[in-house]
């Protein structure tokens, strides 16, 4: 049986199909202005890769910011629970998750069953989200995927006393004018964001194992800083961005099975 999970994030749209507890296919694309169309695009891409149509998918669930706008999903689940389930599938030993998405940042504690025991989410402030890093990359004239590496080349951390994206941006501009190396500016900003992530994590319990999910986990500069603040080595999944979609597909399987068991034998 195949189960589908769709994660419509603020920036990226992700999908996973599982079969026999294996990932059959996954897809990552951009969230367009219309969530319904975006979700259909994710679905169709995965079905094409599998060479199947929707009738083969037993049950579908959606998660993420646009989860209520996925017309072909039977149910939806919060991104917090979905991330916890996805991370638990990859690493059953994981107890603490940091997820940095395009417009939010979350810290989650998960138990040995993959259930959330504690969570905190920050989606009000762009500081400490992927959006902040995007802005800084464009101010410095670098590609988003390169800023982490560039920050690691820094010899001197330039301290930023703000995590406000607006203030940090103007500070970065004035530092550039003064000739401060881009690597030092980036190291300072990565440090400020890591402190912010650490403060969020402190509100839950920081317990082993620890994992980072979301696109941010691909930024080596960021991972290094977070590791430094926590004094803990994270376990990293090969594709940290699909964690929410994976969790949704696992929820789809669980809910479907529960329904089957609950249904009276005919």
């Amino acid at each position: 049986m195949l189960f589908m999970g769709i994660d419509i994030g603020s920036r990226g749209a992700k999908g996973v199909v599982i079969e026999d507890n294996q990932i059959a296919t996954a897809f990552i694309g951009d969230t367009g202005p219309e969530s319904v169309k975006t979700s259909e695009m994710v679905r169709d891409n995965m079905l094409a890769k599998l060479g199947m149509d929707m009738s083969k998918i037993t049950y579908t669930m959606a998660t993420g910011y646009g989860r209520v706008l996925v017309p072909f999903a039977a149910e939806n689940v919060s991104e917090i629970s979905a991330h916890a389930k996805g991370a638990h599938w990859y690493f059953p030993s994981v107890r603490t998750i940091l997820d940095m998405g395009g417009q939010d940042c979350k810290a989650i504690n998960v138990n040995d069953k993959g259930q959330v025991t504690k969570f905190i989410m920050n989606d009000k402030c762009a500081g400490g989200t992927g959006r902040f890093l995007e802005l800084i990359a464009s101010v410095l004239g670098l590609r988003l995927e390169d800023i982490g590496q560039t920050s690691l080349e820094s010899k001197k951390n330039f301290p930023f006393n703000t995590v406000c994206a607006v203030f940090a941006k103007s500070e970065a501009i004035s530092l550039m004018k003064k000739g401060t190396p881009k690597s030092d500016i980036l190291a300072g900003l990565h440090d400020a964001i890591a402190v912010r992530c650490y403060n969020l994590l402190k509100r839950v319990n920081i317990e082993k194992d620890f994992t980072i999910t979301g696109g941010i986990a691909k930024n080596q500069g960021m991972v290094a800083k977070i590791k430094e603040k926590l004094g803990m080595e994270p376990v990293l999944a090969p594709d940290p961005q699909i964690m929410g979609a994976l969790g949704a597909s696992l929820f789809a399987r669980e809910r479907y099975m529960a329904k089957q068991n609950a249904a009276p034998a005919s």
Partner: peptide, 14 residues
């Protein structure tokens, strides 16, 4: 409705 200037920008653009 966004409290953050960066997120409010996106609302204004829309």
């Amino acid at each position: 409705s966004s409290m953050c200037a960066i997120f409010a920008e996106q609302e204004v653009i829309s």
